[in-house]
């Protein structure tokens, strides 16, 4: 799962980034509104964590710009303002959720999970796909109830494909989801990752198909093979 954190307080930004990375997310950190907008426009994030008061461009200006451009990335607002009117304003102006500073980190993670879950149309934190069961909060996958050992990146790849199962995902989109904006992954790292995931999925009835020259698609095989 890929998240953009836009926060001007370096300590808070850094710690949120570190904490989210440690629970297995891919995080980009932007320190002001302009940088945040640039990031949000140049990459598909699953969720955006957005501070309200930002230098250069406020969180709301950023959000408005994004929404105008048709990007409906789920956004959770961070604000020091705790009045009801402020919280209502947050939601009214396009945020999907808000957290009042200072907040509990576990709550941020839980809310990010929930908001992400909703955005992919899942009611609970468990997503069933054929024989696979995804625990979105715990970032775990089981095959027929048996735990599937996955690294963070492997999970991200599988989850990204599963969230849009049956749909074509372009190579660039997947790279964007899996790697930070400023990192430069090696050209074949996605293929290496895919190979590992395919190996681990062998026999589960779920397969990652390659559409040559276009991208990849996750398919669930017929549960009752003839």
């Amino acid at each position: 799962m890929k998240v953009l954190v836009v926060e001007d307080n370096t300590l808070l930004g850094k710690s949120v980034k570190r904490g989210l990375e440690e629970v297995g997310w891919t995080v980009d950190l932007a320190l002001d509104g302009d940088e945040g907008l640039y990031c949000a426009e140049s990459c598909d994030y699953d969720v955006i964590v957005l501070d309200w008061m930002l230098p250069k461009r406020s969180g709301f200006e950023l959000l408005k710009e994004l929404r105008v451009k048709g990007r409906n990335t789920p956004t959770i607002m961070l604000t020091a303002k705790s009045a009801v009117t402020d919280r209502v304003e947050c939601l009214d102006r396009g945020a999907d959720d808000y957290l009042v500073k200072p907040f509990e980190f576990v709550e941020l993670v839980a809310r990010l999970n929930a908001i992400y879950r909703r955005s992919i149309g899942q009611g609970t934190s468990t997503m069933i796909l054929g024989t696979l069961a995804f625990d979105l909060a715990g970032q775990q996958v089981t095959v027929n109830g048996r735990h599937l050992e996955l690294t963070g990146k492997e999970y991200d790849l599988l989850a990204a494909l599963a969230a849009k199962s049956g749909q074509l995902l372009k190579r660039n989109t997947l790279v964007g989801i899996l790697y930070q904006l400023d990192s430069e992954p090696e050209s074949n790292s996605l293929d290496v990752l895919l190979a590992r995931v395919r190996r681990k999925l062998a026999g589960s009835g779920v397969e990652v198909a390659t559409i040559r020259g276009k991208g990849f698609v996750l398919r669930v095989a017929d549960p009752l093979p003839r």
Partner: peptide
């Protein structure tokens, strides 16, 4: 007060999150 609360709450949030992340593992 609004400004001061923002200026005070943000570093406190930073410290809180840092400590919680630090102690998570």
């Amino acid at each position: 007060i609004a400004d001061a609360s923002h200026e005070l709450k943000t570093p406190v949030a930073g410290m809180l999150t840092t400590l919680q992340v630090m102690l998570a593992k």
